[in-house]
């Protein structure tokens, strides 16, 4: 059966703590950290962006699968912070992994679920034998406006899933989507920071879509929460995913491995890829995984996966936990410098 042939993750090596951000705005850091269940978030260096993160994650995935670029027939990169408004991220990734020129490529945007839409597209073109392997990437370096609630969580990171039919480490048994027009979060063309609907992002948006999609995928698979070893959902903060998982009938044992936002913040399109990567880092053959992505605007993509014997043969070093443990704390001044929040005027 078709599924995940390989995976790779990348998290930048800098982080800022919630308390440090709060102190700049005279806010109560421990209250913010507790309310959001976000204690630190990753920060990209001045030379890191969606493209560099996508390349690093994809190179890890290629190395793990011992694939060379000529085996890749498609690259789709999902992000809401592509460095170019016009010019694809995916072609740069293709060049950097030696996959050019015999492939198709495009960039996707669907808020935080653009990457899982790319997985579904890859499943389609692998399924109808258009390509041998397709690469789906979910990655973001999103920013919250200074002082906005989003500033405490918006972070950077991403992951790559190589979708194919040979040497699959996790079969994708079922996938489905739940999509409506729900304007809970958006960024207009040319605007630097996104806007959001405050508490409207909760019940009618994140919870409704994730819950509905979660139920649909389990109906499709004929499964119950207790059939799964792991569950991972989109995680805009550390609270929403726990509440959603519990409401669907899952336990802490099932959701804790894929729940990274408390330590790395909200990586947007990268979140479900990183959570799934953390699970694949330790999963054993036969484990079952339920994954439900969410993207504002709004929609959810659900996946039912089963880990295969192939995973035991794979070199799974460079884990998500390794990347989290190497993160070094920076202060707000450095964060502001790295994230381009200083007004340099025309001096440059």
């Amino acid at each position: 059966m078709n599924g995940i042939v390989s995976y790779g993750a990348y998290i930048p090596s800098h982080k800022i703590e919630t308390g440090e951000i709060a102190s700049v705005w005279g806010a109560d850091g421990s209250a913010w950290a507790k309310n959001l269940n976000v204690y630190s978030k990753s920060v990209p260096g001045p030379d890191e962006d969606v493209i560099t993160i996508a390349v690093e994650a994809t190179r890890i995935a290629m190395k793990r699968a011992k694939l060379n670029g000529t085996k890749i027939g498609a690259i789709y990169t999902g992000s809401e912070s592509h460095p170019y408004a016009v010019k694809p991220t995916s072609t740069i990734v293709a060049e950097a992994i030696g996959a050019t020129p015999n492939l198709t490529a495009a960039d996707f945007e669907f808020a935080c679920k653009a990457g899982t839409a790319a997985i579904q597209t890859c499943l389609g073109i692998v399924g109808n034998k258009q390509v041998e392997n397709g690469i789906a990437i979910g990655v973001d370096t999103s920013q919250g406006a200074p002082g906005d609630a989003l500033e405490y969580s918006a972070s950077a990171g991403g992951g790559t899933m190589i979708i194919g039919k040979e040497k699959v480490i996790a079969t994708i048994n079922h996938t489905t989507s739940y999509t409506t027009d729900t304007p809970d979060f958006w960024r207009r063309e040319g605007q630097k920071y996104p806007r959001h609907g405050g508490r409207f992002t909760g019940k009618p948006a994140f919870f409704k879509h994730v819950m509905m999609c979660g139920k649909m995928i389990m109906d499709m698979a004929g499964s119950k929460p207790e059939d799964y070893d792991y569950v991972v959902t989109h995680q805009p903060n550390g609270k929403f995913p726990i509440r959603a998982a519990k409401s669907l009938g899952f336990t802490e044992e099932q959701y804790k491995t894929g729940l990274l936002t408390p330590r790395i913040g909200n990586t947007y399109s990268g979140a479900i890829f990183l959570g799934l990567s953390a699970i694949l880092d330790i999963a054993k053959p036969g484990d079952r995984i339920l994954a439900v992505a969410y993207g504002s605007g709004a929609g959810s993509d659900g996946f039912d996966l089963t880990v295969t014997d192939e995973i035991a043969k794979m070199d799974r070093s460079e884990t998500v936990e390794d990347m989290i443990s190497r993160m070094e704390i920076i202060n707000y001044a450095t964060y502001a410098k790295y994230r381009g929040k200083l007004n340099m005027g025309d001096s440059k």
Binding site: D47, E48, D49, I51, T52, V55, R59, P83
Partner: peptide
């Protein structure tokens, strides 16, 4: 793999 620079704010990015 890193960003090396850019031509200008509207110019091409160098990786």
């Amino acid at each position: 793999f890193r960003k090396l620079g850019e031509d200008s704010e509207s110019g091409i990015l160098h990786y």
